[in-house]
Amino acid sequence: MARLRGFWEGSSRNPAKRVQFDRPLTPWLFVLPQLLIVAIFFYWPSVQAVTSSFYLEDPFGFGSTFVGMDNYTDAISSREYRRIAGFTAFFAVMVTGLSLSIGLLLAVKADKVIRGASAYKTALIAVYAIAPPVSGLIGMMFFDMHMGPFTEMAAWFGYEMKVGINYNDTAFALILVAVWKQIPYNFIFFLSGLQSVPVSVREAALIDARSGWRRFKDIVLPLLAPTAFFLLIINITYSLFDTFAIIDVMVKDKPANNPMTLVYKVYLDGFKGNDIGGSSAQSVILMVVVAALTVAQFRFLERRVHYG
């Protein structure tokens, strides 16, 4: 106990003092569980995917033939793959932009509420508790061609909405449901960022600028830059990967001309088409694109982010 007290007092006098372990392997034991999880669920599947992408594999596991880069060239040269890649980019931009914009707008409005603030926040956050497959099921109910309320609203304006049959209608429904599911996540972080702005800064802003928009643009928004940068990366990842369940529920058992993202095509080719090599090549391409996009964001966008 005395030894622990001496260590605590020494650390309080010198905050920069580092913790010393009696054995050099002790710190590795603390991080070993996390390292094992990362190695088993990330690195090992990644190595397996890269290896499989160079082979034409039998779906039943009876053998494989080395084909080199053929799986990659077949994917890139495929007109269907390029079309799906284009929709994936459009889908990611729309879902990310709308989710961030609406989440920030709701956070700004909720931050100004004084009476009943808890009820507003709870109502806006509650949607995040819904699982993605359930979100897709709710979306199917709202866009049902026979009794969906959104379909009936479109009929009032003389438009016949056919989600699951018409390509554009299905794309609109997928984007709307994906945005609806992600808004609460952005709302939570933006609201926390707004409430962390010091009162003194808000009072100084009232004196310096009469316009509410100018105060928000010149003072509040720069203070939210770290939060916005973090959410930008999270939302892009969400739109590319975490929307899989929504897409699966809403386009499953529908005509084959429906829109889909690259991660869903990996699933269709690998698990339903039994093209293990081609599916692995597509997953590697997607992994490289996402990694390059993340590096580019950190290299070019993070420079404009000022951490207080």
Rank of each mutant, 00 (worst) to 15 (best):
R3I: 15
G6H: 09
W8Q: 14
G10D: 15
S11D: 04
R13G: 08
R13S: 14
N14F: 11
P15K: 01
P15V: 05
A16M: 10
R23D: 13
R23S: 13
P24F: 11
L32H: 02
P33I: 05
I37E: 05
V38M: 10
F41E: 01
W44D: 03
P45G: 13
S46V: 11
S46H: 02
Q48E: 12
V50E: 01
D58S: 13
M69Y: 12
N71T: 00
Y81H: 10
Y81W: 15
I84F: 01
I84Q: 01
A85F: 12
A89Y: 01
V93T: 11
V95H: 00
G97W: 05
L98C: 12
A107K: 04
K109E: 12
D111E: 11
R115E: 06
G116L: 07
G116V: 08
K121D: 11
I130K: 02
P133A: 10
S135W: 00
L137Y: 10
M141Q: 12
F142D: 05
T151K: 03
M153Y: 13
A154G: 05
A154Q: 04
E160R: 14
D169K: 03
T170A: 07
T170C: 07
F172A: 14
F172P: 00
I175T: 03
W180T: 05
W180H: 05
Q182D: 07
F187M: 10
F190T: 04
L191K: 01
S192C: 09
Q195L: 08
S200G: 09
E203T: 07
A204Y: 06
L206F: 08
I207W: 04
I207F: 05
A209Y: 15
A209C: 10
K217Q: 11
K217I: 08
V220T: 15
L221V: 10
L223K: 10
L223C: 04
L223A: 07
N235Y: 03
N235E: 08
T237G: 12
Y238Q: 03
S239C: 05
L240E: 00
L240W: 03
F241L: 07
F241T: 04
A245Y: 02
I247Q: 06
D248Y: 14
V249M: 12
V251G: 02
K252D: 12
D253S: 12
D253Q: 10
K254P: 02
P255F: 06
N257G: 11
L262E: 01
Y264E: 06
V266N: 02
V266I: 14
V266D: 00
F271M: 13
G273L: 02
D275N: 15
S279L: 04
S283W: 02
I285W: 00
L286K: 02
V288P: 03
V290N: 09
V290S: 14
V290Q: 08
A291Y: 08
A292Q: 06
L293G: 14
A296D: 04
L301I: 15
H306S: 12
Y307P: 04
